[in-house]
Design a protein around this nucleic acid. Structure first.
Lengths: 351, 351
DNA sequence: CTGAAAGCGCTTACAG
DNA sequence: CTGAAAGCGCTTACAG
């Protein structure tokens, strides 16, 4: 007759727990735990049996319970203040690409660096959620105080910035400077000599790097950036209009303007139109980012394509590498290069 | 001499736990728990004492431990497939507005309805994280299968859509139809009679509602939508260019076109430019959404302003109301009305 | 109104 | 290589 021993302990009603798996595999829950955590101290046979049952039942450990025991969570945070929706969404997508299949989830924390409670808010967020790690895109990434805070809280982080601000394993350095240089080369090849620049806010390193790249390129051709041909914008469309209007009213007006992002380049197009200038016949315009706006304005923008989503994915992978859960990802620096996309807004210098 | 009794039990080293608070308040941790959960069965004195200590220590309960005991988490999810970055970011911001101060965090789950694993992925996401609730913007909100899945998983949800698809307490109904009607009225007042329409994909309810509104407005003026003046787009810029090109090549070309969103309206501007038509002198254009693109194209777009962020905030509040943690928020329907913003792209009908 | 016991689903020492 | 005990920080019955 069927003994108790033979009563197949089958898949339980709700979601199975570690106890269910242990019972079914006829091992202790500690052994199941070892399998879950890839401990080497499990015999091949035992491991196979446990894994088979995990596979069959579709068991996946409860991140809350696990987190409680580990004293940390399985959540990754993104802390950001970048105002561009497209940047934000691309970055989020990229991080999720890197997180996929890991069981980690992404929780978002937009913030305002100018708010008085900004650092306190971040502290509560990180502490309460016991975040596994945090991704910091610019310009949040450039805040040393925030980095020190995260260090104090023992929270791993990856900073994304246009210059190395931290230990390499915590950094992704984007190639903004080389992007600026590519813009300069393109304009110089088209015969431009009087080249202007609309910068982003001086509080963004990317803005400085993009400018430095432009100056690299100009210098290589024996040219330089005239103070008269520089205007400081705010990475917004409106500031592009304002700076553009200013630059275009100069006595010796530039024949080409490099804008530190697409939004401002779109604003410059507006200013050019109002000033009665044709683009690219009278004025060439180069943007930066290659976001949707670049193909939605007229003429479409020549710009530098930034691999935001790829960077987001890398950031997630580097986060795992920080805690030895994974190898440091091989960064194909070539894939991070910002490539010039030539469209309608640039043409030969007027003669 | 100082007795043990007088040894002030002070703020502990790390973050305080419920046990620390209990010890300091000289009550059991169950009583602290009652205070945290606003149980009425606590004397005013005890409550005051506990609250004072909680305030002084800055104690906040560990969401993981609490969640483990409650068998749910303190996470709210947003599941979305809307391709517009601005919509997504505004919606996220709105939800966070509604969550602020509650201790809940927002975890994001973009998805692709066409993917084979889409529903399975959502199931794992919701089940594993034991989400407190989920916000579903369009077009995800229109997926009955998904709604049924969430119901099966006993996960609260709020659906945001242009038509009532569910019980009112789970719905936020946006006023797309009235928006379409406002567009029609505006164009009719400007003297237009041949009014065209570029729709979104037929799989989006909003597209139908915006069209129905347009037809309401036309009918009120004794007009109707000629099949010749309708084109089906995809809510993208490129589809706006294509549909615009088609509509503008009709023998009896419309003098005004209402586009179901701004992206397509921007595309239509492009098509008009190529066709040598001036906007608004030869052609009036109305968009929908009032996203950044509306003020970044030339001429700037007359459009319907959609209160995306407000809707997001309401969604979060309604989620709390579903579980009796809060009153059903008073919805000021007026605040959800989509208002016409008149800019440069509309003008009197050509004579 | 208040508290001691048991439990949520995992893990970390500690034995063997 | 494997397991029984205790614990992570909370809560739910159950008493009183």
């Amino acid at each position: 007759m069927a003994g108790d021993k033979d009563d197949e302990i089958e898949i339980p009603a709700g979601r199975p727990t570690i106890n269910d798996i242990a019972r079914m595999a006829e091992v202790s829950k500690k052994t199941v735990s070892r399998v879950l955590n890839k401990s080497p101290f499990v015999s091949a046979d035992t491991r196979a049996k446990v894994e088979e049952i995990i596979g069959r039942t579709g068991y996946s450990p409860d991140p809350q319970a696990r987190g409680l025991a580990f004293r940390r969570s399985f959540l990754v945070g993104i802390i950001f203040d970048n105002p561009n929706p497209q940047y934000v969404v691309n970055m989020q997508q990229g991080i999720l690409d890197g997180l996929r299949g890991s069981g980690y989830e992404l929780v978002i924390h937009p913030c305002d660096r100018r708010s008085r409670s900004y650092l306190t808010d971040v502290r509560h967020f990180v502490e309460r959620q016991k975040l596994y790690g945090v991704v910091m895109p610019p310009s949040i990434s450039e805040d040393e105080q925030l980095a020190r805070l995260l260090e104090e809280l023992k929270c791993s982080y990856i900073r994304i910035a246009s210059v190395p601000l931290d230990r390499p394993e915590r950094m992704i350095v984007s190639h903004d400077r080389r992007g600026g240089e590519a813009a300069a080369r393109h304009l110089i090849e088209l015969g431009h000599r009087r080249i202007g620049f609309i910068s982003g806010p001086s509080t963004f390193r990317s803005s400085h790097e993009r400018r430095a790249g432009l100056e690299d390129g100009l210098a290589a051709a024996g040219l330089s950036l005239s103070p008269d041909h520089i205007a400081e914008g705010a990475y917004t469309f409106d500031s592009g209009v304002a700076c553009g209007t200013a630059l275009l009213s100069r006595a010796e007006r530039p024949t080409a303007v490099f804008c530190a992002n697409d939004e401002m380049a779109a604003g410059l197009l507006q200013a050019a139109r109002r000033a009665g200038l044709r683009v690219p016949q009278d004025l060439s315009v180069v943007g930066f980012d290659d976001f949707q706006v670049a193909t939605q304005v007229w003429p479409t923008l020549t710009t530098l394509h930034t691999p935001t989503r790829d960077i987001g994915r890398l950031a997630a992978l580097k986060l795992f590498a920080l805690s030895d859960e994974a190898e440091e990802p091989e960064i194909d620096e070539e894939s991070l290069v910002m490539r010039l996309v030539v469209r309608e807004s640039t043409g030969p210098a007027p003669t």
